[in-house]
Design a protein around this nucleic acid. Structure first.
Length: 574
RNA sequence: GCCCCGCUAGCUCAGUGGACAGAGCAGCUGCCUUCUAAGCAGUAGGUCGGGGGUUCGAAUCCCUCGCGGGGCACCA
């Protein structure tokens, strides 16, 4: 099913091409002066050396838009203003209302997509940095899955490397039972800090830790067992956080750095065979083209360190190779903070040079900025330590609970708790997803939990309010099927907004700019309230009532779907 | 020194070459015997960081400067 905008674009493109004597973009977009406007004649004017107004007029004469538009006019220097016919809006909406996918088609090309996200470190607390990666990655997973792609969730757990020597030795010092307890109840930071403190201050401990790392990499059974204990207890804790957060990640999605360890030799062999490896300062490196260091010299990606160990570059390369060759992925998403931009670009470049990342396969850094406190600096607790993610979520839910109890005292206990969770967690996620992800954003409970403005509670309430229309009258289920008829300006505005979902979803699947979906939902909600303010629904005469109920129903379903794609629940009651 | 990101209303943010730059909050003015007030309508508020340039047209593209943040070989 083609969207309204696609239909207009196709028809106009045909006319533009005929006039231009070759392909020409109509440059169609929404307009303040009509429903849509096409600006293609202005750029075409220069190309053809003809007055844009004449071109626009000719396009209008040739374009076959009778079934879609009530008015097509040339304005100003050559804008083509399009007013969509009420009948066309009604016809398209009637189809969308009947469609479980709300007019959004499945992806034409079904890809295998690996989404690399969340990636906490074993025996370390999850903080706000993980919040962004987890929330954005979860939205990517939900959206791409819904479009029909095969999505592989990859939680690149930090479960390997030199810190594990000190962590295991510390575990032995305090005893397995105590360690398991600390880790499983989420006291990860104090565990890690205690280990770190001993490592920094005790030469004997430091030596034990070093030896332990060697044992771990050698595969010593006892060491491996202790390591598994650390990993499993940490995973248990992370899963509890994910459950609280309401994301799709499961225990099966942990693919830690250790999982790629055995594949690193192949990576080295492959690079060696292709002549990409060079020894530099004792380390084995690849020098991807286009990267220089402070002195303007080629910048290496260190695959094997001078001491023989492997760093994250080796792991990342092994992961790419595995994902494209073994998993058959054609799209690799890395939901990782912006500071790692250069590292990832280098890894991608090496993978391309090594032939592991060839079109149509490509890798994308889905980067994001920092979470800031009210002071405009990186969010920290009063003590100056990073804020624990779980504390952040608990606080949001607690505040939501207060607000919900205040606004709707009639809600029974269990329902209130459920709503508080949906609102609190939803607010945190929406605050993260509703601004351009490359920018930093200020974490502010008051603003994100406000029922005014572009927030989750506003959208959730808009949804619940519509649902309440259908509940009114003692469980009566109003008839929503039948033809949709639009005529009032507010009805038309809502109709056009509703028909825009497919194009927005399409764009976001490509750009992974979820704030565009968020802004769309907010615009839809405000357009709806205007409609509901001006157009009686339940009081309207039977035919109009049925049609308007269909608009209400479709709006609610669109809000619920859109929020759902962002990982945010939309309760029926609030 | 090189590279990346950001700078838009008092605050928080939209706006990926087109018509007078848009929301929300805060401010001001209205609107609850009529499905919705956790709402709606209106009003006020801008050197789009500065300066050049490209273009019929620039918040948007290019150059340059400023401010803030980040990265730049064995941590991830």
């Amino acid at each position: 099913m083609a969207s309204l905008e696609q239909l207009l674009d196709q028809r106009l493109a045909a006319a533009f091409s005929a006039v231009a004597g070759g392909p020409a973009d109509p440059v169609l977009r929404r307009s303040q002066h009509a429903d849509f406007q096409a600006d293609g004649a202005l750029t075409l004017g220069r190309r053809l050396g003809r007055p844009p107004r004449d071109l626009a007029a000719e396009v209008v004469r040739r374009a076959r838009l009778e079934d879609l538009c009530a008015r097509v006019e040339v304005a100003g220097p050559g804008f083509i203003n399009l007013t969509v016919a009420d009948q066309a809006l009604g016809r398209l909406l009637s189809e969308v209302v009947e469609d479980v996918r709300l007019g959004v088609p499945q992806a034409a090309v079904r890809e295998t997509v690996v989404v690399d996200y969340s990636a906490p470190n074993v025996a370390k607390e999850m903080h706000v940095g993980h919040l962004r990666s987890t929330v954005i990655g979860d939205a990517a997973v939900r959206l791409l899955e819904w479009l029909g792609h095969r999505v592989i969730r990859a939680n690149h757990l930090g479960d390997w490397g030199t810190p594990f020597g000190m962590l295991i030795e510390h575990l032995l010092d305090i005893g397995e039972a105590e360690a398991a307890h600390e880790l499983s109840v989420g006291d990860l930071d104090s565990f890690y800090r205690a280990a770190r403190r001993k490592f920094d201050g005790d030469e004997g401990f430091r030596e034990r830790a070093r030896r332990r790392v060697v044992e771990l990499q050698r595969g010593d059974p006892t060491t491996r067992r202790l390591w598994r204990l650390l990993v499993e207890e940490s995973e248990r804790y992370f899963l509890a956080v994910y459950q609280r957060l309401g994301v799709r990640l499961t225990g099966d999605d942990f693919v830690g750095e250790s999982a790629y360890h055995d594949r690193i030799p192949e990576v080295l062999e492959d690079l060696e065979r292709q002549g990409l490896l060079r020894e530099s300062g004792g380390a084995r490196c690849v020098f991807p083209s286009g990267f220089t260091n402070r002195e303007g010299e080629p910048l290496p990606l260190i695959v094997q360190k001078a001491d023989g160990g492997f760093g994250y570059a080796a792991t990342d390369l092994a992961a790419i190779r595995h994902r494209t060759r073994d998993l058959g992925a054609t799209r690799l998403l890395y939901v990782v903070g912006l500071p790692q931009r250069q590292h990832l670009e280098m890894v991608f470049e090496v993978a391309r040079e090594a032939g592991w990342l060839q079109p149509p396969a490509r890798a994308e850094h889905v980067g994001f900025g920092s979470v800031l406190g009210p002071d405009g600096r990186m969010l920290r607790s009063r003590a100056g330590t990073p804020v624990k993610l779980i504390d952040l979520l608990d606080e949001a839910v607690a505040r939501a609970r207060t607000v919900v109890a205040e606004k709707n005292p009639s809600l029974e206990e269990a329902a209130r708790e459920e709503v508080a969770r949906a609102v609190g967690i939803g607010a945190v996620k929406y605050a993260d997803l509703s601004t351009d992800r490359v920018r930093d954003y200020v974490f502010d409970y008051g603003r994100m939990l406000s029922f005014d403005g572009n927030t989750a509670p506003y959208l959730q309430y808009a949804h619940a309010r519509i649902r309440s229309i259908f509940r009114r009258g003692g469980g009566e289920t109003p008839e929503v099927s039948g033809p949709v008829v639009v005529s009032e300006p507010a009805e038309r505005a809502l109709a056009i907004e509703l028909l825009g979902l497919a194009d927005v979803v399409d764009g976001v699947a490509e750009s992974l700019e979820f704030h565009r979906l968020a802004n769309y939902l907010y615009g839809l909600a405000t357009t709806f309230t205007t409609f509901y303010e001006r157009c009686p629904v339940l009081r309207a005469e039977a035919g109009t009532r049925r049609s308007r109920l269909a608009l209400c129903d479709l709006t609610a379903r669109t809000l619920a779907l859109g929020l759902g794609l962002l990982g945010i629940p939309a309760p029926d009651r609030m």
